[in-house]
Design a protein around this nucleic acid. Sequence first.
DNA 1: ACTGCCAATGTAAACGTTTCAAATGTTCAT
DNA 2: ATGAACATTTGAAACGTTTACATTGGCAGT
Lengths: 342, 342
Amino acid sequence: MTSKSTMREVAGKAGVSIATVSRVINSPDEVPTETVERVRAAMRYLNYRPNINGRRLKMAQTRSVGVLVPTMANPVFATSVQGIEQAAHEDGLTVLLTSSNYDPQRELGAVSTLLNNRVDGLILTLANADDNPVIDLLKAENIPFVLLFNQPARTDVASISVDNARSAYDMTQAMIAQGHTSLAMVAGRFESSDRSKQRFDGFGQALSDAGLGAARLCQVGFGETELFTPLKSFLTGPDAVTGLVCSTDMLAIAAISACRDHGLSVPGDVSVGGIDGIAVGGLISPKLCSAIQPTQEMGQQALAFLRGLIRGQANPQSLILPHQLSTGESIGPARHSSSPRL
Amino acid sequence: MTSKSTMREVAGKAGVSIATVSRVINSPDEVPTETVERVRAAMRYLNYRPNINGRRLKMAQTRSVGVLVPTMANPVFATSVQGIEQAAHEDGLTVLLTSSNYDPQRELGAVSTLLNNRVDGLILTLANADDNPVIDLLKAENIPFVLLFNQPARTDVASISVDNARSAYDMTQAMIAQGHTSLAMVAGRFESSDRSKQRFDGFGQALSDAGLGAARLCQVGFGETELFTPLKSFLTGPDAVTGLVCSTDMLAIAAISACRDHGLSVPGDVSVGGIDGIAVGGLISPKLCSAIQPTQEMGQQALAFLRGLIRGQANPQSLILPHQLSTGESIGPARHSSSPRL
DNA sequence: ACTGCCAATGTAAACGTTTCAAATGTTCAT
DNA sequence: ATGAACATTTGAAACGTTTACATTGGCAGT
């Protein structure tokens, strides 16, 4: 009774054919109760467990979806995966998880593995959604997929995201409204994240609309939490800023920490805003001011959307969800500029 | 060229038999270079993609592992999954991800699904590792598995964890060393997490060893971040504590937030310590003092361990990794007890 | 020229399902 | 009795692999 018994054995035990056993499994209503019971009893007795791989080989669908995220180490993605997993569970779908570590090279490999697994569809967060061999591959193979967090310019792919430029724009404007005129953005590398670039664009637009000159940028590697050195020239000296707009909440939290290490208070000396809306942002002090996106719901929606695509009931389409500026404590009035730090 | 071409078509195109194609895929060295090239060319031409399900049906192994965690929303688990995924990727293994939401009911269902998928092995974080039908099932089916974070009393299962009681003990002792005599533990529900219980035991032991009376407990639901009300009676009034030992870092961060909302400073009025060592703890202010476990590495090790079990090269065994008390700022000297709060 | 060997390849039988078409009853009106 | 209509059930052929075993042909040794 260790494990593997087959439909054939169950059929033998129950005195029916494997076709009947199959029907008991897949459409018990078409089989007389008495037979169903007999077969079920045999299954229990033999400890039968259907071999999904047998079924998958035979059927067109595998009832599995592939998920690719940059990393689980960032709560944004972890939370979205939580949403995906939850929705998948409710649908009886199996989730195959991969991560790219923000490396476009690995994206292609990971997706290829997923395709070999014959997943019914994919949910992806890519480094760059507009010019990406992964998308070409998926298009060519004609397999349903939904981009999550990516906000592609092309309109022939499904995506669920917030308006990245706009969320950065709003956050920047909130700072400007507090009197900040000397701002910089802290952002992840553009080649690793198109969101990063889009958010920087929004930042620049807000500055330009307010007549505030060129956008300054502090670009850092992903996964980086040590921002003391990268931010040094932005926080000290004659060009010191009074506000930092960060392209992600993780960066914002790291930036606040770096400010502290430079002996600056937030928001007293420097205001810091993030984008993403990770849960921990609401618990720390100062409470992080962020452009919040409904991360977990986005994951759930992505799966629902994907299901539609798989069933052929939906067309690729971009869903831009509203973001919401949180009332955080990490942003305050600009420190008067006549008392520069050194 | 949409997608699905089979080995048979490749064989036809290359003018060989499917056996040869299979050999080219699995052991190219046993096939003359010239033939390998011809077959590979046919594969490229036909856009061939091996159907893993065909292979899985035939072979004993599926080269996939199942992962079950309580939730992705807690960075501890997300980070461990990151470690697992990374190691799995290096091994060419596919990861099937499920989460239980801390619900023992769902644990069984999730594992059952994983088993239907014929995973080669499992990595699990269970609510309760000592008396759990999931473990009985896995034992009965004789399928390799490694518990992660769980620290079972039984010695016949493989596990990777820290010494939970000890880490709570050490944290508590660190507070006592700072003069704290009135402490309470904030912990997740024991029925949802045996770690929680073990850590509470360590907490109690430390108090008892220091002759400090009964252990007080504030038990909260998992995922809970609103601790203002639950902690009210611990933070105010005649029985107010000067220190909170929290069973997880997430709880500790939430507890610090709750203290703030009660108008108490950390560590000025109340010291707060956590257990887990999530990354964000090191970035917040005050820097969270925690009993740190190498979360991501534990995930990687769990996979390496599991691989050994699958190959039959290793025996189930408990790995207790050392934890490390971080030098956090969230713990300070006890506020003098002659000025009680109300 | 025969034998024996070896390298290269092919044949065919699984693996555990699903599902179509066909077979076997059963019931009932004629 | 006969056969139509129907409810149950079955046989058998896939699905795309892997692999034990058989076949082929070339070549060296005698």
